[in-house]
């Protein structure tokens, strides 16, 4: 909570640290070095039929960092997240404009291989959604899709991923039991482990803790901290404390637009936009 300033403080500071016009592009006080950029959105918009999902998003995400996206419900943060690995394709009549690139590859290019893209950009969902298979089969699902058949290789991958997801100690005896027998928090870590098995560059997390109790949430957050550096993590969350705890940078979305994008400390202590301040201080949202 300390990171979130009182409203009065924020207004005071705004006078002093006003940077650019309200319409200015995300402030990059500590700009990301170009070679470190892994996800680049430039004037990116996504429409559901006629309805606008997100519009004109321009932001860059640094490789190996944790980026949080916050914003009120329906602001397009999940839409943007799901655009990064094109999960929105599952919804009929979606249309994208502008540029969105992962590792230099245009995501919405017609020639983009969705399978490769999704292998590089893994995703963890709001509700834990393990397959109704054994733990082992859940983890090995991705590698098997890639054609890995060797049992020893798969065993190694399963163990490695579960260890990385801090689940190995808990389930190593029950690898061939159904994943659905696990608790909610364990299931979510299993889903993360399953994503890791694909060796992605980026992991997208769509409110991964919203269905979990505080203890399980804490473990997931620890896990995120541990995975940072190896993987680029983009996390959408409703929980501003969580964003403040786990992320390096935070983007604030509102009504389908990117309002502010900055270092987390900076955004929470000294937001440059009025609506950001209103949101993080609890005026709305």
């Amino acid at each position: 909570m300390d990171a979130i300033p009182k409203r009065s403080n924020a207004t005071e500071r705004r006078g002093g640290v006003q940077i650019g016009s309200p319409k200015s592009r995300p402030h990059t006080e500590s700009a990301i070095r170009p070679e470190k950029v892994i996800i680049r959105a430039s004037g990116f918009s996504l429409f559901y039929g006629e309805k606008m999902g997100v519009s004109d998003i321009t932001m860059e995400i640094e490789a190996g960092s944790v980026t949080a996206i916050i914003g009120p419900s329906g602001c397009g943060k999940s839409t943007f997240l799901r655009s990064i690995n094109r999960m929105n394709d599952l919804i009929p009549r979606t249309r994208a404009e502008g540029l969105l690139a992962v590792g230099g590859q245009d995501v919405y290019d017609k020639r983009t291989n969705l399978v490769n893209l999704r292998r590089q950009v893994g995703m963890v969902f709001q509700r834990p959604n393990p397959f109704a298979k054994s733990i082992y089969d859940n983890i090995s699902y991705g590698p098997r899709l890639q054609g890995i058949r060797s049992r020893t290789k798969l065993n190694a991958i399963v163990q490695q991923c579960l260890e990385d997801a801090a689940l190995w100690e808990e389930v190593k005896e029950d690898l061939h039991k159904s994943a659905l027998a696990l608790s909610g928090g364990q299931q979510q870590r299993l889903c993360i482990a399953r994503t890791l098995a694909n060796k992605p560059k980026v992991i997208l997390m769509d409110e991964p803790c919203s269905a979990l109790d505080p203890l399980a949430t804490a473990r997931i957050e620890d896990l995120i901290a541990a995975l940072k550096g190896t993987y680029t993590i983009v996390i959408v969350t409703h929980n501003m404390q969580q964003a403040a705890r786990v992320s390096d940078r935070t983007a604030f979305f509102c009504l389908g637009k990117l309002i502010e994008y900055d270092l987390t400390d900076k955004l929470f202590t000294n937001p440059s936009e009025k609506s950001t301040e209103d949101y993080i201080t609890g005026r709305f949202g």
Binding site: N85, M87, L90, L114, V115, N116, R118, R119, G122, M123, F125, N129, P130, F131, Y141, G142, L145, Q146, C191, R194, T195, N198
Partner: peptide, 9 residues
């Protein structure tokens, strides 16, 4: 979604 996100068609 889980399956799609893991790269299966």
């Amino acid at each position: 979604e889980a399956s799609m996100a893991l790269g299966s068609g």
